[in-house]
Design a protein around this nucleic acid. Structure first.
Length: 691
RNA sequence: GCACCCAUAGCUCAGUUGGAUAGAGCGUCUGACUUCGAAUCAGAAGGCCGCAGGUUCGAGUCCUGCUGGGUGCACCA
């Protein structure tokens, strides 16, 4: 028995009563948590809705309170319900049988397997950083959002495939290649020897970050702000064509640069506990002719048509009536240019069709990286005979039932076109199969810019935030920030726990740093712009990841102490005993009457409300999954940690003299730490031994 | 010009498909370490929820208009 099951039973009882008494089918039954525990554990404002329905149906006017009274008896029959009160204008407030429920909540675990009997697979694409430079904090928001959402979907019982799209043939990679070839005058061998000679301060992706900003200036006369230099811009086109064609020294060089950056980015993400199943590379979408197939499908189904006149003469366009055209802007979206080349959106439709299992073509695959725990990240390849080491089993990639694309909100227009295009090609899929999991950008606060030594104009200083730009090299690099968090955390650990071994110290510092950064990026809802601020991001106090970790660490230390006590008392006798948790469980099972007294009244309410909050993890998770909003789970986790810290302060658990009360406190603390640890794990945050 | 997003405490943000007295964190002020560790807790102060209408038993939440800010609308990716 968990709270969701209990809630469903209550809903069932209300539905049955409404059907029987008023002949009304309730489609949406709202539940609510009363503002204070004294008002009950669960509330239904259903009588208001029923009053409306009854009036509409028969014209009879009936007071919500009397409707609530009529529904009451059916609810009171349920075993775990102690009593039901009608409150306010007509709320149905449910009070659970606390003594009964506390022992039932103890008997876990809740297996979700029954929910996931359907074979459908969900797919999440996230990170997808252009492989031409190091990751910055904005990229990390994308990755953390995506990774956390994957964990939430998993916890809800879904099969999930994680993809990271690698645009290894695009202009951004081409620009860095131009930098290496035409600014640095390097060939592939020179780049390789440079790569192996780089220091840890400036690894390959950092080097590319700097080079990329120099290319921006290189394209203009006299540097940034100057007129475009057509001769040099032609180099970009040349490189781009060479990369697309493949099988030439430039393409080989580009492949090395892109692959090395992907490796570096994967290293960065590994620091945050983020991994992928598949790296889908644009080079294969190109070379395996995914676009050509999608083009055929789109022509067949009449999704696009050839323009014979007007400004877009010679192009294949997709009509897009929801956007009205103006003099400046076309209402139709060009998919194939008049020179015959395909736009990015066209390629994206092909990729999306493959993801959903409706392209009729597949990639070849090879392992890109394997991890100690047996996990493997695969990459696409155009080599049909790609080999995998023995023992590494290839999963079936693609064919997702629903595809979530984690992409920032600036791309909502192209994403809309992809969604509509795919739905037009495969009508039975519908637009619901493609979900744009959009989020607002991470920008820099003016204060953060100054700390980075970035000069601002007076105009910029007045703005609420300044957009980061890879092109301008304007941004906080992910590895820099993580390292700084680790340094700060390590200093704290060293002063608090000088007795720990060095390895354990740095492990703890790493857990804290990851917790701080992940929580910081998750506490904002997706459509809120994060104006990055160093002070906030580097904080370990207040609403932060470390705060939540600390609550779990404290809870664990209670049980460590309890175990130590148990061991020391046992050593004098036979050396075996039931252990403190089992003892508590026995007391809870046998002393129902004492239990009821302890859980009653003001002090009982306070203990009980923590247990109820801890019991709502799955509910919070389900809501986070349904609304694709990881922040919801982050807020829940923080609130649970906060409630535990309060509980921790009010009760001396180990020193409690009343045996039954002690058992209750132990049971509640144990249940809370389990739920809190599980919640944190879904946010990708681990709980260290000590901190 | 058109589309989408945002506006809630001094600052940064929550506020679940409309529900009971609008909540956190930071900052400010006051207090709590003989402890299961103070990366903590308690208390105080701080709100015409951008403005004006509307819908209804009920609106921070839904609708319309307005104001102010952001983003997008390439034969770029």
């Amino acid at each position: 028995m968990n709270l969701i099951e209990l809630q469903n039973r209550l809903k069932g009882a209300i539905r049955a009563a409404a059907a029987e008494l008023f002949e009304i089918e309730i489609d949406q039954l709202v539940t609510e948590v009363p503002p204070r525990t004294e008002l009950g554990d669960l509330a239904f404002p259903v009588a208001f809705e029923l009053a409306k329905q009854i009036k509409k149906k028969g014209g009879e006017k009936r007071a919500p309170r009397s409707i609530a009274e009529a529904l009451k008896p059916g609810l009171e029959e349920i075993e775990e319900v102690a009593r039901v009160e009608v409150a306010g204008a007509g709320y149905l407030n449910i009070f659970f049988d606390r003594a009964k429920l506390i022992s039932e909540l103890q008997s876990k675990p809740e297996a979700h397997q029954d929910a996931s009997t359907e074979p459908r697979k969900l797919m999440v694409e996230h990170t997808s950083i252009n492989p031409n430079k190091a990751a910055h904090i904005g990229h990390v928001r994308n990755a953390v959002l995506g990774d956390t959402f994957v964990r939430i979907l998993h916890a809800a019982g879904n099969a999930v495939e994680v993809q990271n799209y690698i645009d290894n043939t695009g202009v951004q990679v081409a620009d860095v290649v131009v930098g290496f070839m035409h600014i640095e005058k390097m060939d592939l061998d020179a780049i390789k020897s440079l790569d192996s000679s780089l220091s840890a301060d400036v690894p390959f992706d950092y080097y590319c970050w700097n080079l990329y900003t120099r290319v921006g200036a290189f394209y203009r006369e006299g540097g940034i702000g100057g007129e475009p230099n057509p001769e040099r811009l032609k180099l970009r086109i040349e490189v781009l064509h060479a990369i697309e064609a493949g099988n030439n020294p430039t393409a080989e060089l580009a492949d090395y640069v892109a692959t090395r950056n992907v490796q570096q980015i994967l290293n960065t993400m590994e620091r945050l506990g983020i991994r992928y199943d598949l790296l889908a590379r644009e080079s294969e979408i190109l070379h395996l002719h995914f676009w050509e197939r999608a083009f055929e499908l789109m022509k067949e189904r009449g999704v696009i048509h050839f323009q014979t006149e007007g400004r877009t003469r010679g192009c294949w366009v997709m009509p897009f009536e929801s956007h009205t055209g103006t003099d400046e802007h076309e209402s139709d979206k060009i998919i194939v240019r008049s020179n015959g080349t395909v736009t990015y959106t066209g390629k994206d439709i092909a990729y999306q069709l493959w993801k959903l299992g409706h392209l009729g073509l597949d990639f070849y695959y090879q392992p890109f990286r394997t991890y100690d725990d047996g996990h493997a990240t695969w990459a696409t390849t155009s080599e049909p005979n790609a080999k995998a080491p023995p023992g590494v089993l290839r999963p079936d990639f693609g064919g997702g039932a629903i595809v979530y694309n984690v992409i920032d909100s600036r791309q909502s227009y192209p994403q809309e076109i992809v969604r509509k295009g795919v739905a037009a090609v495969v009508p039975e899929l519908g637009e619901e199969a493609s979900v744009h999991l959009s989020y607002e950008m991470v920008a820099l606060s003016p204060a953060a810019c100054e700390q980075l030594g970035i000069g601002l104009s007076d105009e910029d200083r007045k703005r609420p935030y300044i957009e980061m730009s890879g092109r301008k090299g304007l941004g906080v690099k992910a590895d820099d920030l993580i390292s700084r968090l680790e340094t700060d955390a390590l200093a704290e650990v060293q002063t608090r726990h000088p007795e720990l071994a060095a390895a354990e110290m740095s492990e703890t510092a790493h857990a804290i740093a990851t917790g701080a950064l992940r929580y910081f990026l998750l506490k904002f809802t997706r459509n809120s712009v994060i104006a990055f601020d160093f002070k906030e991001a580097l904080s370990f106090e207040g609403e932060t990841g470390p705060y939540c970790q600390y609550a779990a660490v404290r809870a664990n230390s209670i049980f460590r102490k309890l175990d130590e006590q148990a061991v020391s008392t046992r050593s004098s006798s036979d050396g075996v005993g039931p252990g403190p948790l089992a003892e508590a469980a026995t007391l809870i099972r046998d002393r129902k009457q004492d239990l009821a007294n302890i859980l009653d009244g003001e002090s009982g309410n306070e203990i009980w409300s923590l247990l109820m909050l801890a019991g709502r993890l799955e509910e919070a998770n389900a809501q986070a999954a349904a609304s694709a909003e990881p922040a919801f789970l982050a807020k829940y986790t923080f609130n649970l940690a906060r409630a535990f810290n309060l509980f921790y302060h009010r009760h001396r658990i180990i020193a409690e003299e009343d045996a039954t009360k002690r058992a209750v406190l132990i049971a509640v603390a144990d249940y809370t730490r389990e739920q809190l640890t599980a919640a944190l794990l879904r946010l990708g945050i681990t709980v260290p031994e000590r901190m």
